[in-house]
Nucleic acid binder design. Structure first.
Length: 491
RNA sequence: CGCGGGGUGGAGAAGUGGCAUCUCGAGUGGCUCAUAACCACUAGAUCGCAGGUUCGAAUCCUGCCCCCGCAACCA
């Protein structure tokens, strides 16, 4: 039976339209899912939206529309982004309206060991009227909000449910240090270990209904409280598998799953590597196996921020350069686990150098030369070429396993470069070369191209398909080549 | 001394003791099948700074400077 492969993106909160950073995570997860499927695994890929965040409520209020309307409209934009990016997710969860989610979030709450959830008075919180949000004592300067000095702070005390995270300190440390839950890259793993060793404190998992503005998943058997948004949000990962009904997908992909991966941004590592496993342990559910933590984008070297007005709209980028060029840039320019910079200048530089001059031109020259020769018979390719292809395949597979997608792509481009070199050296266009030799040369070159397309498939699916369409087996052992339109016209 | 990561040619990266590597960008030459693309060659780095260990240091040690992540209920 095929091995199972479960993968998720984080579910972004939908207080605003997606920016280019969201696209990065979708594309990374998509590559892994497509790679797994290409290699015969039974992949299930889930994405969705976090509708229940308080920020959504605030954004809706500011816009003067109802929360469900606001959230619904924005969730649609995220869903459209997945489609436009050609993301191969099998499911999409919306945490405010998906019944599987509402039922599942409550089920996991009820499944937690009773001694892990307790009610406690919450104090030491201050509400800043300027920020319209709660502040911790230690965030205050001289008892005042840093950003709104002089404004009176309202002291708040509230009774909430807490989760006894402190019960899981030892087990979490074991699970993470032993890589039973593998956090990639290592620096993120070390951060989590340091955090755990510093001592885990219990965290609150509910809000008063009033403070949550009546938005969120109700706490089972307590009308006065809704779940803290992270508690319900994290459960989406299993709710998509019908955890609530103890469905077959949940058993297959999660409880007995071979691979279970969460792709997340560095800002939410703690929730995924510590809170979420602790919740699962308490509820007696299996754990994910890997957390892949990617970095963030800067735009022209600066943080993405609304106040700087440097938001880049992924739809604009896709519209301008095409979906595969966008996917390529996100995956190639940004080291998968580090921060990277987005500029249109860099985008166009990469586009011209790698896509137009590199991949596109190589495909064009090989297919054009080949088209003129008509039908080609299958022959054994040069050992040197065969070795390069095997090496490239090995390298790409290894880099994907290590979550170094940018290096995987670099490996594919080495193969393209090798193909260019081969064609230059052999000169199959030359009048001095006999017909049989020409056919041999082109067969070698097109074999490289075909393998490039196969390796590229998870990264740039429609480009891979276009290339493959130019290489058709007319009958057994007989190959016909057709030059297609330019894959990536120079900018 | 809160914990951790990092500073390598114009840009981005690789490189944990032995001639400093790769990609982009720049220049020169070759080729002309191909999207003025491709191939070869050249220029460009005192490897953050200052000491130290060593026959030999980007790599190990010490100090300093700078950037970044985490620092708990905040995606």
């Amino acid at each position: 039976m095929a091995k199972t492969f479960y993968i998720s993106t984080s579910i972004p909160y939908v207080n605003a339209a997606p920016h280019i950073g969201h696209a990065l995570e979708f594309v990374q997860a998509d590559v892994l899912a497509r790679w797994a499927r290409q290699h015969g695994q039974d992949a299930f890929f889930v994405s969705g939206t976090d509708d229940n965040a308080l920020k959504n409520v605030q954004a809706a209020e500011a816009a003067g529309v109802s929360v469900d309307k606001w959230v619904g409209e924005h969730a649609n934009i995220f869903q459209k982004l997945l489609k436009d990016l050609n993301i191969s997710n099998n499911d999409f969860i919306r945490t405010s309206i998906d019944q599987r989610h509402l039922a599942g979030a409550q089920k996991i709450w009820r499944s937690c060991r009773p001694e892990d959830i307790y009610k406690k008075k919450y104090s030491g919180l201050f509400y800043c009227l300027g920020c319209e949000e709660f502040k911790n004592t230690k965030d205050l300067i001289n008892g005042e909000c840093e950003e709104h000095p002089g404004k009176a702070l309202e002291s708040v005390a509230e009774e909430n449910y807490f989760f006894r995270l402190s019960n899981y300190q030892k087990r979490l440390e074991d699970i993470i240090s032993s890589d039973k839950l593998k956090i990639v890259p290592k620096s993120r793993k070390n951060e989590m270990l340091a955090f755990i060793r510093d001592g885990l404190e219990d965290f609150s998992i509910s809000r008063s209904r009033e403070r949550a503005k009546d938005w969120g998943v109700p706490v089972p058997d307590d009308d006065s409280q809704v779940m803290y948004v992270w508690f319900d949000a994290l459960s989406n990962y299993i709710n998509a598998l019908d955890y609530a009904d103890d469905g077959g997908a949940f058993k297959k992909y999660w409880q007995q799953g071979d691979e279970i991966i969460h792709v997340i941004g560095k800002g939410i590592n703690r929730f995924h590597s510590i809170y979420w496993p602790a919740m699962l342990l308490s509820a007696g559910i299996g754990l994910p196996k890997k957390i892949l933590v990617h970095g963030y984008f800067t735009i022209d070297g600066q943080k993405i921020s609304k106040s700087l007005g440097n938001i880049i709209d992924p739809f604009e980028v896709i519209g301008k350069y095409g979906v595969d060029a966008t996917r390529y840039f996100l995956l190639r320019e940004i080291p998968s686990t580090d921060d990277g910079d987005f500029t249109f200048a860099k985008f166009e530089e990469r586009y011209n150098a790698d896509l137009a001059n590199g991949l596109g031109n190589f495909a064009a020259r090989v297919l054009t030369l080949g088209e003129k020769l008509g039908e080609l018979s299958e022959i054994e390719i040069d050992k040197e070429i065969a070795d390069k292809i095997v090496a490239a395949k090995g390298l790409v597979g290894l880099k994907i396993k290590e979550f170094k997608l940018h290096e995987a792509l670099a490996g594919i481009w080495e193969l393209i470069s090798c193909g260019d070199k081969y064609v230059n050296d052999k000169k199959p266009w030359s009048a001095d070369v006999g017909d049989a030799d020409k056919r041999k040369m082109i067969f070698n070159a097109v074999t490289i191209l075909d393998n490039v397309a196969a390796l590229l498939q998870p990264f740039m699916p429609s480009t891979a398909e276009k290339i493959t369409q130019g290489i058709s087996w007319s009958s057994a052992g007989k190959l016909k080549l057709n030059k297609a339109e330019n894959l990536f016209p120079r900018l």
